[in-house]
Amino acid sequence: MAIKGYIRERFFPHIWCPGCGHGIVLNSLLRAIEKLGMSKNEIVVVSGIGCSSRISGYVDFHTLHTIHGRALAFATGVKMSRPELNLIVPMGDGDALAIGGNHFIHSARRNIDMTAIVMNNRIYGMTGGQYSPLSGYGTLATTAPYTNIDYAFDTVELAKAAGASFVARSTTYHVQQLTKILKQAILHEGFSVVEVLSQCPTYFGRKNRKGTAADMMEFYKDNTTPVGSKAKKENPDLIERGVFVEKEMLEYCREYEKIIERAMKGRS
């Protein structure tokens, strides 16, 4: 398999549970990178903490496994010192939007060129199934045994409002679309956000009686629709997937270069 050239095989089989959607995200990400024909040396994968963040250990690129919620901050440091590298930042929903919520919105606001992947399984899996900011009203979790009364963020709306110049969503069922979107996001110059609905059969699925991993993927098939479709108008409960925003904006590192030039004018 050609994509096996991009992984650290010595760490496989990986630690993710049977049927975990994060493995499918890894699978799709490797295929996107393979299709782009990128070399291992031009990619940096930076992750934080959580099930999702273990992904950085499995890929054979430059990798940083950093601290909870701060993957984007570390990635910003790497990108500003080596702007020629391609930054990919896979995060969990809690990692990206609770612990790292501030880093997330400000990275989007700055439009720094990197690809943030929000692997949304709606729960904190690694620590035992606590509810996350994407669990949503009425769901069950270890820390919400009588149902959760917090409303969920909409990652796409949040990223759009914060100013991200590329915003997309897909699921682990729609793997071909996911690979295509990841390719687009990596090529996009600016801050790209890709939310991936990713099943956690062990905690979210079990607590909320969502069945097997395959059942949860069937749910993604039945309850999502392409962005702007007629089906969404008829049934507003459907979750839209596809590319929501793709716009050209001045990129942060390039603008910073100009500042350096301006400041250094007349001096060597």
Binding site: M1, I3, G21, G23, I24, L26, N27, T172, V175, M217
Partner: peptide, 13 residues
């Protein structure tokens, strides 16, 4: 190849 693309464990090709 839908099995290959959807395998979370990269175990089938």
């Amino acid at each position: 190849k839908m099995c290959e693309l959807r395998c979370p464990d990269l175990a089938i090709e």
